[in-house]
Design a protein around this nucleic acid. Structure first.
Length: 674
DNA sequence: GGCGATCTTGCGGAA
DNA sequence: CAAGATCGCC
């Protein structure tokens, strides 16, 4: 603990009651949490299995686990729980879900699956509102996060659309139950319901978890806070760490007010502030402080550091989005070649996932290794979605979303007309599509050909199911299954080039190999064998793939969204696309909610240790059209004496001339096309 | 009734 | 620029 400052030590040593640590960016909060876990075990007589630390991302959980292990080298950390909220919820439901009448092999729907069944629901009952599907899904998610049940809402909501959404909500939950599935929000919501209805069960878990630590507390939503409150119980032995200036998840229900709420709920709450920053230069911190000063504050704090003044912050105007990516890529190459700075010291941060594409192209062109962290890119790939659906069907044949995705992939000549009839039949019989496919009564509604093809599929699938249960090498059966359907062949036919096909088949193998390794490793928390359904659920939670990335540990430039960058740090940081409508995002400008965007800017700035470069483009291609952009207001909010603007004076550069030429060409083409 | 080609629509962030 | 919707063809 010798490397901690007095405030940090205080936070580690205080175990007499509830503690809130207000930790500014880079103030060593992870050190505090990990040291505290070590302290609890070594000095306070806590058993590792009586401690639980909860974070929001798999990455944070993994890092925390690693650091605790190295602090306690030799000593056993067996049974120590370090996990994400969602993973914790998943484990709780697997173990205790039967008390809510859940089957233990339930599957986990991602938001796309959820959208599919909500859409179907709306299509049937409110076809004129099909445009509102996204909106309704969002409302339902928010209600779940607020622990509101459909019954609480009927007649108590304001607008017509909310009224309908409340109805859809009830039906949606019934459908999830029918499919033996839960969604992400349920992973938190259902454990709270469980504990409410089964106090004995709650008591058991309260006795198991004697001390609780929560990271990024400002990101908790109502259901997460409720779960924490239940688990800590009257003993209230816990530490939460948070920073209201880094609250960037209100759109998924996060309530930074939970920081204040804590004082009301636990009057004995002790508060410790960490304001010394160990990450960035003074200039970077000054910029961050100045920007965030434009937001109102409940808790005031002023970050400072002893890392020296550092270089001025550069602001670069680029002619276009392409020029911007090009500029960043070439700068990275030069710094790497001239100063020998390793690629992994660089990070490029952006507001939206779609911005990564252009950056990727430019990095590829310059042969710069890069890695896109987090994001949904891997799981968004169609081959991964397909295989995931096969996997889900294997553990739970009633998973209609998975069924629909792969019933005709690869081609089985089962099309929309057949599926519609199948769906009608299943709805009437109140059973899953898979179940319906096996029933004789279905045959009178279908042509013989179609019925046979469905039966052939279910027979085949049931065969796989049996084999999986019997085998002690389930992954081999999975490989056999993919072989049966000639999935590799299908990918080759479906891909444009052999090269792309290789890559896609490679992705599939990464997934399957990962699953295999995960099963071999078993459950790290309690050393029990990991069931295949757990492993597959954890795949949906992205846990496994990120682990895989971590193990690669290559020397690559880091690309990620600002959201994904929270909690990380990089010596040299580029923030790109600093334009009005992008950051702050258009939707936030329209809704007048600029403060969260400002916090996002704050998070971005405070990722940088030594050098910070901010770029924006004068013109940007959007929806295939080139639009003019103005630089972000947040750039004007920064301390101008610490900024170096490049290319702000609007002389037309060579690049812009080129851009103009292509513009004219584009409009000519457009004219010709019309 | 299913398939493949063509048109069209629409980018926020994540477990 | 990709996924989804639509359309004509087999």
């Amino acid at each position: 603990m010798s490397n901690l400052n007095p405030r940090q030590k205080e936070a580690v040593k205080y175990i007499d009651g509830p503690l809130l640590v207000l930790a500014g960016a880079g103030s060593g909060k992870t050190s505090v949490i990990t040291q505290k876990i070590a302290y609890l075990i070594e000095e306070c007589g806590f058993k590792a299995h009586n401690i639980a630390a909860v974070t929001f991302t798999n990455k944070a959980a993994r890092e925390m686990k690693q650091r605790v292990n190295s602090l306690l080298k030799g000593k056993s950390t067996r049974g120590l729980t370090v996990s994400t909220f969602h993973n914790l919820g998943l484990n709780l439901l697997r173990k205790e879900g039967h008390r809510l009448g859940m089957k233990s092999n339930f599957t986990l729907f991602d938001q796309h699956d959820a959208l599919t069944i909500i859409k179907e629901q709306i299509n049937q009952n409110f076809p004129n509102l099909i445009e509102e599907t996204d909106h309704i899904q969002h409302l339902i998610s928010n209600w779940k996060n607020d622990l509101k049940e459909p019954e609480d809402l009927v007649g108590r909501v304001e607008t017509d659309i909310e009224q309908i959404a409340a109805q859809v909500y009830g039906q949606y939950n019934r459908m999830l139950t029918a499919y033996n599935a839960v969604d992400f929000d349920d992973l938190i919501r259902l454990p709270t319901t469980l504990f409410q209805n089964h106090p004995k069960c709650l008591e058991k878990w309260q006795n198991r978890i004697r001390y609780m630590l929560v990271d990024e507390y400002q990101d908790t939503n109502t259901s997460q806070y409720e779960l924490v409150k239940m688990l800590v119980g009257f003993r209230a032995q816990f530490t939460v760490v948070g920073d209201d200036d880094q609250s960037i998840y209100s759109w998924r229900g996060a309530r930074p007010e939970n920081l204040v709420q804590l004082q009301d709920d636990f009057p004995s709450l002790k508060v410790v502030k960490l304001e010394q920053n160990y990450r960035s230069t003074s200039r970077i911190l000054k910029a961050a402080n100045t920007v965030i000063d434009n937001n109102p504050h409940v808790f005031t704090k002023q970050l400072w550091s002893e890392m020296g003044m550092g270089d001025p912050i550069r602001v670069i105007r680029c002619a276009s989005d392409e020029a911007e990516a090009e500029k960043i890529a070439t700068e990275i190459v030069h710094q790497h070649l001239q100063k020998g700075i390793p690629y992994k010291d660089f990070a490029v941060l952006y507001r939206g996932n779609h911005q990564s594409r252009i950056m990727e192209i430019k990095l590829q062109a310059n042969q710069v290794p890069y890695r896109i962290a987090g994001g949904t890119s891997f799981f968004g790939k169609s081959e991964i979605k397909d295989v995931m659906s096969y996997l889900r069907l294997v553990i739970n044949p009633d998973d209609d979303a998975a069924f629909l995705r792969i019933i005709n992939t690869p081609r089985r000549e089962i099309g929309p007309a057949t599926l519609e009839k199948l769906n009608d039949y299943a709805a009437a019989r109140q059973c899953s599509l898979f179940q319906a496919s096996t029933e004789m009564g279905l045959r009178i509604h279908l042509t013989e050909r179609a019925a046979d093809r469905l039966v052939q599929f279910t027979r085949w699938m049931e065969d796989i199911l049996v084999k999986i249960q019997r085998s002690d090498q389930p992954v081999n059966i999975i490989r056999e299954m993919l072989d049966d359907i000639d999935y590799e062949m299908w990918l080759r036919q479906d891909s444009n080039t052999p090269n792309a096909a290789d890559k896609r088949w490679g992705n599939v193998n990464v997934l399957v190999d990962g699953l295999e390794r995960m099963l071999e490793r078993g459950n790290e928390e309690d050393d029990t064998e990991l069931a295949i359904e757990d492993a597959i659920s954890k795949l949906v939670l992205r846990d496994l793939m990120e682990r895989q990335e971590e193990e690669a540990d290559d020397n690559a430039v880091q690309l990620m969204t600002l959201h994904a960058s929270k909690g990380l740090e990089f010596p040299i940081c580029y923030l790109m696309g600093l334009e009005e409508e992008l950051l702050p995002h258009r939707n936030s400008i329209e809704s007048g909610d600029i403060e969260e965007e400002r916090r996002l800017m704050y998070v971005g700035i405070t990722r940088a240790k030594k050098k910070l470069t901010l770029t924006y483009a004068a013109k940007r291609k959007q929806f295939g059209e080139i639009v003019d952009c103005t630089h972000s207001r947040f750039l004007d909010e920064m301390p101008q004496e610490d900024l170096n603007w490049e290319g702000k004076t609007g002389e037309i550069t060579q690049e812009e001339n080129n851009q103009k030429a292509t513009n004219t060409l584009d409009s000519l083409k457009a004219l010709l096309n019309s």
